[in-house]
Nucleic acid binder design. Structure first.
Lengths: 216, 216, 216, 216
DNA sequence: GATGAATGAGAATTCATTCAT
DNA sequence: GATGAATGAATTCTCATTCAT
């Protein structure tokens, strides 16, 4: 409305609106799945209208993909921060395991989105340019730790970086992703605070024990 | 009037119809999630009509719960068959890990149903009487193995049966459940035949190494 | 199954089954209206099956008509019993009013069926042979009372038998038929026991006062 | 952009659409009852689609409740207009009876809706906030007339306002509500023009005679 | 006479999406 | 950029009725 910085303000508003839509959409998709999420519900939970969702994202599917892209981008941003280079191999792999644990603990919506995306056989990820080859950095990191550990004699088990990544991820992911069925069947909420420290140590112990391997 | 009994035949047909509905429904729910599954599509893939689904199961939700109940029942049936009692502790826990791996490998629809159910926060499992306390048998088994291992000195790590069950399950579950996003991001299909034997050995090695623990 | 009285027994059973169906159907139609009544529900509340309803009555509509016919037949049976001939005109018309009151009080399902039938513009009554000209006897009775009252000088108001029948019926019918909306709007259940005697006297007073008329 | 305001026009359209739906729905519900009414049929009789019914009213039941609320609101609006305060008691009660007669004569759909609602035991009225305590104004009016009549000596019968309201309403309501069964059984259409004046006078005569009471 | 399984036609409701302003 | 009204195409679910035995 003022004479000068109108366009930039508008842009900033537009960005804010888009960000708000993405935030609400992430929650809605995470809670109800792709098909179960309601465009109406997303709109109802915002101060903008449903029309804006289509204006900015074009369709429910494209909105969902944008949510996925943002979630993965945040994960990789976190992983980039990890500095395990200066640590000894055993300490390094344990640090990676614990950081992964912490990250999964902190980003439960992301975990749910990944689970949802697997139900849809990753069809949306494959449609997204932004999500191709997003995995390589962490694999490089693991490779370097494994090489150092084998060289130093700390690790004995011959292991592949992708396998080790899966070993770590599976534990951290399952604890969050399957908390509800696990809780219903075994009567224990693995994400409750009283189990946190023990399970965090466990994933580190597990991967170190596996790599040390010895005479199993 | 003929020598063959009439009523049982009708009954058998009814049972067959119900079983067929459950089979097709399991595939449809596993592929599309609860909200994404279509009652029309389930009916279209059978020699029965949509009306029968409501006749036998009452609603989409009750059909879904029946599918879940059947899937879990089959899992427990498999677990019941496991005979690890006569094995030494190390061999026993490895056998359990490998049987779990095999079962998850063989029942991928079940894995997907569990993932779907977690997205819905296990609300349907909690509604089902049949699915309460389904977890206890396997926990008893693990407890006995852990006790024997500690007594014999084979195991060193103090571990809880539920935690160990999660340790084993998470690896086997993740490999199947997250195969699509994992494949899209890392370019490797962990469920492909060429990875099977290696990963099957890995879950056994991992749990044994963890329990042996030693001087981590 | 026995050799001799098989057929009569069968017949008696058949009559009993039909009577039971009619009884349950009357309740169901009275409670839910014609369209709202469920054939399934009627069957579920009996020891016979749904097939029998169609076997004996052919369709939902014919069952409904049979229910109506039975209900009206019972009403007329009651009216036939009324003996007011030997009473003086004032006592006679009051007796008729009170008998009508009692009858409506006692046969509330019948009242509801009549209300339902009016919603459907009496289309089913018109289809039934059994229900044609069912009204004449009571009109004859009223006519004779009115004639006697005018002759004796007890009644002054020139009144038509049909009008007087409506005057009496409307009060008795409304009290039962509209009890729910009246209760909701005015906070009084006109069918409650504490109002019964007062309202029963009121309908007699009203019709006598009207016929006495005098210098209104 | 034009001189006429845009938003109000849209709003007016919305209001018009809602009003049109209510109008058609009232006819459909009145003619077929709640269960017998068809949402499809309501939509087919308008320039709007069925979807709008759900957009504005949410469900068939809520539409029905809205119809009821509107019908009752109109009744009370009519009653508010009645000015009998300046009349002598006898003239006043007769005026009220005749106005009630006229109103029922004019709003036959309303009568049917009330009959339908009674079949459903007033469950919808009870769900509606708007319909609570709608009855009081007319009861106040009757009370004042009765008091004045007793004071002046015009009325002799001790009568309760609710009872008198029922006395008047029952006659007017029955004549319209039961016209079809009454016509089928007695061969006279009480709502036909040739009976109108006589019956209108009759309800006034009846209530005055009742209240005058005398030596019954 | 009796029974449970089966069904076609239809009814209520939902949902992503677009239009007029 | 923004808004509320509008909508077509499904989608779940229901119901009276009939069939096979």
């Amino acid at each position: 409305m003022t004479s000068q910085p109108a366009a930039p303000e508008r842009q900033r508003d537009a960005e804010r609106t888009k960000a708000e839509i993405l935030e609400v959409a992430r929650q809605e998709f995470a809670r109800h799945g792709y098909a179960g999420a309601r465009v109406d519900e997303i709109a109802a939970r915002m101060r903008t209208t449903k029309r804006m969702i289509y204006y900015y994202f074009g369709s429910k599917e494209q909105l969902y993909i944008a949510v996925l892209e943002k979630a993965y981008a945040e994960v990789r941003e976190t992983e980039r921060v990890i500095e395990v280079e200066h640590l000894a191999p055993v300490a390094a792999i344990r640090a990676l395991a614990e950081l992964t644990f912490d990250h999964h603990d902190l980003h439960q919506d992301f975990i749910k989105l990944v689970a949802i995306e697997n139900i849809h056989q990753a069809e949306h990820i494959r449609k997204s340019q932004a999500l191709a080859n997003l995995g390589t950095p962490v694999l490089d990191l693991i490779s370097r730790i494994l090489d150092a550990g084998m060289a130093s004699g700390d690790f004995v088990t011959e292991a592949d970086a992708i396998d080790v990544h899966m070993l770590i991820s599976s534990f951290c992911f399952f604890r969050v992703a399957n908390q509800h069925t696990f809780g219903a069947l075994f009567g224990r909420d693995m994400t409750a605070p009283e189990h946190r420290a023990r399970l965090r140590a466990m994933v580190g112990d597990m991967v170190v024990a596996y790599l040390r391997g010895a005479d199993i």
